[in-house]
């Protein structure tokens, strides 16, 4: 567990812009994100922040603290728990919510989980549809949320490059890429009819590198799984499969200790680890510079069919 920061970090040397200096790109991104968070909190009746425990969520949460300081974050956090999240992630989630003082809601598609939904039996596409997309839509409807923040970034995946900052969803929660509202300047159209909602992406213009640099500059706590250490893994070709509750080993397969880390956090059956020595944030950043493949390459669900992220998004996935 690295929920280390007991003192909230203040006055980090780079945090205070001096008038003589141009603002760095991180300050500019931060200012834009804070503007978005405040707009949504002011224009919608029931906003919620999707909190997925990963690095992007961690940055988004910090930005929310900054946006409303010294007032508390004026909306709850919602975690969609598939039942396949790493145990470390859940502990981290609860600790973060406690530290930040935010209300945390957890939603699980219990009927699907009880029915034994898992990616080994179903294909990953249908598993995601039930445990993530369906659960998310149910939760949004249950609580009647009219705006939901997500930590998605446009640089993550091709179909996300076209996503608006305010992404309009119809009453069924679906996304129509051909019918998106034009978004000019920093003027966001927050008007919706009853039943419709907006997904909001305050980190739209951040890249993976920006996120890590910001975590470094701001000393934002992140889940320990991002840092390299010796972990027991099943090794299949290039793939490292973590041992979690749901893992089904092949006959004769034995886990071995591998120094590795996770580059992005998903469900344990669908998130592979990578061999790495990067055990600090600067080391992760150094590793990123040398990377030859994109961040979501380890996420099985992005590759289950051509244009798969776009299809998931149309159906209501984040």
């Amino acid at each position: 567990m690295l929920v280390a920061e007991t003192e909230t970090p203040r006055q980090s040397p780079s945090a205070l812009p001096r008038s003589s200096q141009p603002l760095s790109h991180l300050r500019l991104l931060e200012a834009e994100s804070i503007h978005i968070l405040r707009e949504v909190a002011s224009e919608f009746e029931r906003p919620v922040m999707l909190y997925s425990i990963g690095k992007d969520s961690s940055v988004m949460l910090r930005l929310a603290q900054k946006a409303f300081y010294p007032a508390p974050i004026p909306f709850p956090l919602l975690h969609i728990d598939t039942g396949f999240k790493f145990a470390e992630m859940l502990a981290f989630r609860d600790e973060m919510a406690r530290q930040v003082g935010a209300k945390l809601l957890v939603w699980r598609n219990e009927p699907a989980i009880a029915a034994g939904t898992n990616p080994m039996v179903l294909d990953t596409k249908r598993c995601c549809a039930l445990l993530k997309t369906q659960a998310l839509l149910d939760a949004l409807r249950h609580y009647n949320f009219d705006a939901a923040f997500g930590g998605a970034r446009r640089d993550e995946e091709k179909s996300r490059a076209k996503e608006r900052i305010y992404s309009f969803r119809d009453a069924a929660g679906q996304w129509d890429p051909k019918n998106q509202r034009p978004e000019l300047w920093n003027l966001y159209n927050a008007r919706i009819h009853s039943g419709e909602s907006i997904r909001v992406f305050p980190l739209s213009n951040w890249t993976e590198m920006d996120v890590w640099q910001y975590i470094h500059e701001e000393k934002i706590p992140v889940v320990d799984l991002y840092f390299a250490k010796e972990r027991p893994m099943y090794v299949r070709g290039d793939a490292l499969m973590p041992i979690e509750q749901s893992f089904v080993a092949l006959p004769g397969e034995r886990p071995q200790m591998v120094k590795c880390r996770l580059r992005s956090l998903g469900c344990s059956p669908c998130t592979g680890a990578m061999r790495s020595d990067a055990d600090t944030i600067p080391a992760i950043i150094a590793e990123l510079i040398s990377f030859r493949s994109s961040e979501r390459a380890n996420r099985v669900i992005d590759h289950d069919q051509e244009g798969s992220m776009e299809i998931k998004k149309r159906e209501g996935y984040f």
Binding site: P22, L23, H25, L26, L28, L29, Q213, H216, E217, I289
Partner: peptide
Amino acid sequence: FLERERQKDL
């Protein structure tokens, strides 16, 4: 590298 990144604008 990180120091250089801090100088970068947009």
